[in-house]
């Protein structure tokens, strides 16, 4: 499958164990096509962040380990690479909770992230490109990043990731703690970058409403397993998704929860 026309990213049957005992994801497979924009939806603790870390190589800093399956990027197995080598290949991971360099200015945040690529001229051109996407960051370029608003910090985190000139942008809950209009604004910018630069995007979200508006395909992860994979249109229409992730449908009663459990087993 991945030999003929390989997806940019293919995660094949990956299993992740923390601390040698705790099984966080159990045989997950996901494909991100070139230039595609894919969503990974699921509740807290479902294993979304763990999956991203298995791609960016940040698992080992948390004593996690890919114990089965493989992650292929551009047709190549990357499991043995360090986080830095993966960024050089073009994978970048925007961490949950923004994690900007708080004591640096936005300018410096972007400079720090350009360490893996090119000379000073490249860096400056690249930085102007980022400020082009996020003019609001440009206005605050010399403020201390820790004092930016949540939305500005999220923009900075994304801009910082773009400084590495990635081919795959992985975003972990960019909507976390942001007002809906900001979420819409940021997602629109991400979609624009995806279209204009053919940058592939893997968007991890709890906020299924917002995410399904911008991605073309979605995966639903529950308890460390993928339980659904479909186009975003089909997912929006799915009654389970509507009921439990889009907040629509009937009120939550005992019957509903039982029904949900049953459906989940069936899907698994």
């Amino acid at each position: 499958m991945s030999d003929a026309a390989p997806s940019l990213l293919s995660i094949n049957n990956v299993e992740v164990i923390y601390d040698h005992v705790s099984l966080a994801i159990k045989g997950v497979s996901i494909e991100v096509p070139r230039g595609g924009m894919v969503g990974l939806l699921g509740a807290n603790g479902a294993g979304k962040s763990t999956l991203l870390k298995s791609v960016s190589g940040l698992l080992k800093t948390e004593r996690g380990e890919v114990t089965r399956g493989e992650v292929r990027f551009d047709g190549r197995n990357i499991d043995a690479l360090t986080p830095q080598e993966r960024v050089e290949l073009g994978i970048v991971h925007v961490l949950e909770g923004r994690r900007v360099f708080e004591h640096l200015t936005p300018d410096e945040n972007l400079v720090a992230a350009s360490a893996v690529r090119g000379g000073r001229a490249d860096m400056l051109r690249n930085r102007e490109r980022v400020y082009g996407y996020f003019p609001r960051l440009h206005e605050r370029r010399t403020a201390q990043a820790g004092y930016l608003s949540g939305g500005e910090q999220q923009m900075l985190a994304i801009g910082r990731a773009l400084m590495t000139q990635p081919r795959l942008l992985m975003l972990d809950e960019p909507s976390l703690g942001l007002a809906p209009f900001l979420v819409a604004e940021i997602f629109e910018i991400i979609r624009r970058i995806n279209r204009e630069e053919q940058l592939s995007v893997l968007l991890v979200e709890q906020n299924a409403i917002a995410a399904l508006e911008v991605v073309s395909h979605g995966y639903l992860i529950e308890n460390g397993r993928i339980v659904m994979h479909d186009s975003s249109e089909a997912m929006k229409k799915n009654p389970d998704i509507q009921e439990f992730y889009l907040g629509g449908g009937a009120a939550r009663d005992f019957h509903g929860i039982k029904h949900y459990r049953r459906r989940k087993r069936w899907l698994t």
């Binding site: 991971h93 961490l95 400084m163």
Partner: peptide, 9 residues
């Protein structure tokens, strides 16, 4: 962690 995530060694 954020440094690793953007490729800083």
């Amino acid at each position: 962690t954020a440094s690793w995530s953007v490729g800083i060694s």
